[in-house]
Design a protein around this nucleic acid. Sequence first.
DNA 1: GCCAGAGTACTCGGATAATCCATGTCCGAGTGCGTACGG
DNA 2: CCGTACGCACTCGGACATGGATTATCCGAGTACTCTGGC
Lengths: 151, 151
Amino acid sequence: MTSRFTMAVHALGMLACEGDRCPGKALTSEAIARSVNTNPVVVRRVLADLRRAGLVGTRRGVGGGVALARPPSKITLRCVWEALEEGEQLFARHPAGPNPKCPLGLVVADYLEDLYGHAEDLLKTSLGKVTLAQLQRDISARLAAAPTPVH
Amino acid sequence: MTSRFTMAVHALGMLACEGDRCPGKALTSEAIARSVNTNPVVVRRVLADLRRAGLVGTRRGVGGGVALARPPSKITLRCVWEALEEGEQLFARHPAGPNPKCPLGLVVADYLEDLYGHAEDLLKTSLGKVTLAQLQRDISARLAAAPTPVH
DNA sequence: GCCAGAGTACTCGGATAATCCATGTCCGAGTGCGTACGG
DNA sequence: CCGTACGCACTCGGACATGGATTATCCGAGTACTCTGGC
């Protein structure tokens, strides 16, 4: 599922903005979950992948939480994508592989492998051009342009 | 799931090759399922979408099955993608939407909506350039280049 | 020998049960702060 | 009054139920071929 990527970008956007307002400040998974509108454990699972990839750091205990491990300008959406890519891919292949007895099936599988590989490379290249710093600026601009939030 | 797209391309590849060797010949969902290595009913469900989109035609009874409803040169992978896109998208958004109380969440959701929209457009454009006839030629070439299948 | 009719075999299409994955809930591990006690 | 040690509150991390979705099984609808009986 790619909703994990959506959540990751959302969380990182929050962390970038928070780190800008108050450097070194960590957000709790519970606070992020409130904004993402999901369960804290889901956020923790996503952030665990980002932690393993070295994008964020976590601290337990009182005042703990999650914070960026690098400056936002050094984090691209491609890094995020690849951190979550672990063991799952955008395009699902044959669930059980094609029938090895059928040569056409093998060829089609190869063809699709190429096709999907190119599409994913294209996407990754596109995501690699967006840094978290740019994302944060864009978010700030949109926040400033938005009317006061309703109560 | 995008494995449906994989199966659809696989099935259409078979149909194109079959229609080339023996025009008007229909393949049964059971034969396709054997090559795809799945259950015939899964193939039928995928083909049902393609039928609703007017890409293939089905005939019941003895000698029935599925056949292309248009010449392969008139079918692009984009058509296939859009036929299966019904109610599901490549990039999953927030499962329950972001928290409307959090302005940042709304902005992030908007941002991702743009990002995903552009990515999907790019993909569709790319798929639109590939016709089933080209796919069939590529498959035939690879089949000819492949060594004799092992027994 | 020829024709008509019913029977049969084979296929798709939809409804229903089983399995798998994702989500949600719970409990343990770790950490910093506050407090209380002793020197 | 100061320092240290204990306790507590809070947070992440992983293990175990629960729900939804995808998949697999079953039965009905439709069609063409075939066999049999009559003319």
